[in-house]
């Protein structure tokens, strides 16, 4: 796998993403500054979390117009795998690679904690090392993770198997109590139609190392490395 991590001004999970990928890949991905106009030859692009442009204007809105994003969109349309985590997810929605928006959390506060996610689609190159219905423990850290989209788009996402993860309890039950931020249908992560672009609010790269308290994020990067080797 040839991997790149995009770095925007205000990205702050870029190093976390690098380390997360490195755990599975055995080498460091390339770090690409947002002002670049060309991407190296890669088959996996990660758009990391953080506060690109300070979340000013609207989360991800300004980054979506960074020079490098034209290339990311082009590559995504060519089938290159793209993962957006947290602010990266927000950027991918602003760039039009994924539908919907991420609104302010229902309780209006920043939330940082481990949550459980039910794996909804375990047949993608991101998720095939999990099993469908499995509850995995992954941290969230966001202020604007409340996924919203209109009824038609939501129905399409559900119908096409584009919902990758839902917030659930530790036993995999998807319910209101486990919906930490008010997202529609408890959605924590979605795929594009072709399933080569995944956006998710939780941070799989933060739990790839037992010393940090868990490794439930690692199978995602293992799966990508295996699919792209």
């Amino acid at each position: 796998m040839k991997a790149a991590v995009i770095v925007f001004p205000g990205s702050n999970c870029d190093r976390d993403m690098l380390v997360g990928i490195e755990h599975s890949l055995g080498r460091k991905p390339e770090m690409v500054w947002h002002k670049e106009t060309e991407l190296p030859d890669v088959d996996f692009i990660a758009v990391p979390g953080g506060f690109s442009y300070g979340d000013y204007l609207r989360c991800g809105a300004m980054s979506a117009h960074s020079p490098i994003m034209r290339e990311v969109v082009k590559k995504a349309n060519q089938g290159v795998r793209v993962l957006g985590v947290c602010n990266g997810f927000q950027i991918l929605t602003e760039a039009g690679l994924l539908p919907g928006v991420l609104m302010r959390n229902a309780k209006l506060r920043f939330i940082c904690k481990d949550v459980h996610l039910r794996v909804e689609n375990a047949e993608t190159e991101f998720t095939n090392k999990y099993t469908a219905g499995q509850a995995i423990r992954i941290p969230v850290a966001h202020h604007d993770g409340n996924f919203f989209t209109d009824d038609d788009t939501l129905a399409a996402l559900e119908g096409n198997g584009q919902v990758a993860f839902r917030y659930c309890d530790e036993n995999g039950n998807v319910n209101e109590a486990s919906n930490i931020n008010g997202s529609r249908n408890n959605i924590a992560g979605i795929l594009n139609e072709k399933k080569n672009v995944l956006g998710m609010m939780p941070h799989p790269e933060r739990l790839c190392d037992a010393q940090l308290g868990g490794t439930d994020g690692k199978p995602m990067f293992d799966a990508l490395v295996e699919a792209l080797s």
């Binding site: 190093r15 976390d16 380390v19 940082c112 904690k113 190392d209 940090l212």
Partner: peptide
């Protein structure tokens, strides 16, 4: 402390 990102930087 759940309003503070206590895990960033890994």
């Amino acid at each position: 402390w759940e309003q503070y990102d206590h895990m960033v930087m890994g």
